[in-house]
Protein backbone atom coordinates (compact mmCIF):
# COMPACT_ATOMS: atom_id res chain seq x y z
CA UNK A 1 0.00 0.00 0.00
CA UNK A 2 2.95 2.21 0.47
CA UNK A 3 3.86 1.95 -3.18
CA UNK A 4 1.01 3.80 -4.82
CA UNK A 5 1.08 7.04 -2.86
CA UNK A 6 4.79 7.33 -3.35
CA UNK A 7 4.45 6.66 -7.05
CA UNK A 8 1.78 9.34 -7.26
CA UNK A 9 3.95 11.75 -5.34
CA UNK A 10 6.84 11.02 -7.61
CA UNK A 11 4.72 11.71 -10.67
CA UNK A 12 3.51 14.90 -9.08
CA UNK A 13 7.06 15.98 -8.50
CA UNK A 14 7.93 15.52 -12.15
CA UNK A 15 4.93 17.58 -13.12
CA UNK A 16 5.99 20.29 -10.70
CA UNK A 17 9.42 20.14 -12.16
CA UNK A 18 8.19 20.63 -15.69
CA UNK A 19 6.21 23.59 -14.51
CA UNK A 20 9.22 25.06 -12.78
CA UNK A 21 11.35 24.60 -15.84
CA UNK A 22 8.77 26.23 -18.04
CA UNK A 23 8.37 29.16 -15.71
CA UNK A 24 11.95 30.15 -15.54
CA UNK A 25 14.94 28.89 -17.39
CA UNK A 26 17.10 30.98 -15.10
CA UNK A 27 15.94 29.05 -12.13
CA UNK A 28 16.18 25.66 -13.70
CA UNK A 29 19.13 24.72 -11.50
CA UNK A 30 16.93 25.20 -8.51
CA UNK A 31 14.21 23.23 -10.19
CA UNK A 32 16.65 20.44 -10.87
CA UNK A 33 17.64 20.33 -7.26
CA UNK A 34 14.14 19.87 -6.09
CA UNK A 35 12.13 18.56 -8.93
CA UNK A 36 12.55 14.86 -8.69
CA UNK A 37 11.39 15.10 -5.15
CA UNK A 38 9.19 18.00 -4.59
CA UNK A 39 7.44 15.83 -2.07
CA UNK A 40 6.62 18.17 0.71
CA UNK A 41 9.77 20.23 0.35
CA UNK A 42 12.62 19.74 2.72
CA UNK A 43 14.10 16.61 4.14
CA UNK A 44 14.27 16.33 7.88
CA UNK A 45 16.34 13.23 8.38
CA UNK A 46 18.27 10.87 6.20
CA UNK A 47 19.26 7.52 7.60
CA UNK A 48 21.15 4.94 5.63
CA UNK A 49 19.38 1.62 5.79
CA UNK A 50 19.84 -1.82 4.29
CA UNK A 51 18.06 -2.25 1.02
CA UNK A 52 14.80 -3.94 1.91
CA UNK A 53 12.97 -3.75 -1.36
CA UNK A 54 13.51 -2.58 -4.85
CA UNK A 55 11.51 -1.17 -7.70
CA UNK A 56 10.52 2.19 -8.99
CA UNK A 57 7.44 2.65 -6.89
CA UNK A 58 9.41 2.50 -3.67
CA UNK A 59 11.82 5.16 -4.70
CA UNK A 60 11.64 8.66 -3.39
CA UNK A 61 14.05 10.97 -5.09
CA UNK A 62 15.89 13.13 -2.65
CA UNK A 63 15.35 16.81 -2.17
CA UNK A 64 18.42 18.96 -1.91
CA UNK A 65 19.87 19.48 1.48
CA UNK A 66 23.27 20.89 2.06
CA UNK A 67 25.03 19.60 5.08
CA UNK A 68 28.60 20.51 4.63
CA UNK A 69 31.38 19.15 6.66
CA UNK A 70 34.97 19.92 6.26
CA UNK A 71 38.02 19.29 8.20
CA UNK A 72 41.32 17.69 8.55
CA UNK A 73 44.64 18.97 7.33
CA UNK A 74 46.38 17.01 4.62
CA UNK A 75 47.78 13.79 5.94
CA UNK A 76 51.43 14.03 6.75
CA UNK A 77 53.77 11.87 4.97
CA UNK A 78 55.73 9.12 6.61
CA UNK A 79 54.84 6.10 4.61
CA UNK A 80 53.66 2.91 6.15
CA UNK A 81 54.33 -0.53 4.80
CA UNK A 82 51.51 -1.52 2.49
CA UNK A 83 49.27 -4.38 3.47
CA UNK A 84 48.53 -7.14 1.02
CA UNK A 85 46.31 -6.52 -1.99
CA UNK A 86 42.74 -5.61 -1.10
CA UNK A 87 40.51 -8.62 -0.62
CA UNK A 88 37.06 -9.13 0.78
Amino acid sequence: MLHLPLAILALGSVAACRQNAAQSADHSAVAASHCSAAIGGSVSTVVAVPLMASGASLLVSGAAIQSSTQTSPPPAAPLHTPNGPPAL
Binding site: L2, G40, V43
Partner: peptide, 19 residues
Amino acid sequence: WVYAQITLADGSRGQGYRV
Protein backbone atom coordinates in the same frame (compact mmCIF):
# COMPACT_ATOMS: atom_id res chain seq x y z
CA TRP B 1 25.05 7.08 -3.73
CA VAL B 2 23.60 5.58 -0.57
CA TYR B 3 20.21 3.91 -0.36
CA ALA B 4 18.54 5.56 2.57
CA GLN B 5 15.32 6.01 4.40
CA ILE B 6 14.32 9.60 3.92
CA THR B 7 11.91 11.27 6.28
CA LEU B 8 10.33 14.33 4.78
CA ALA B 9 9.30 17.48 6.58
CA ASP B 10 5.70 16.30 6.73
CA GLY B 11 6.74 13.11 8.48
CA SER B 12 6.20 10.81 5.52
CA ARG B 13 8.92 8.32 4.76
CA GLY B 14 10.29 6.67 1.71
CA GLN B 15 13.43 5.16 0.31
CA GLY B 16 15.78 6.72 -2.14
CA TYR B 17 19.44 7.43 -2.74
CA ARG B 18 21.34 10.21 -1.04
CA VAL B 19 24.48 11.46 -2.73
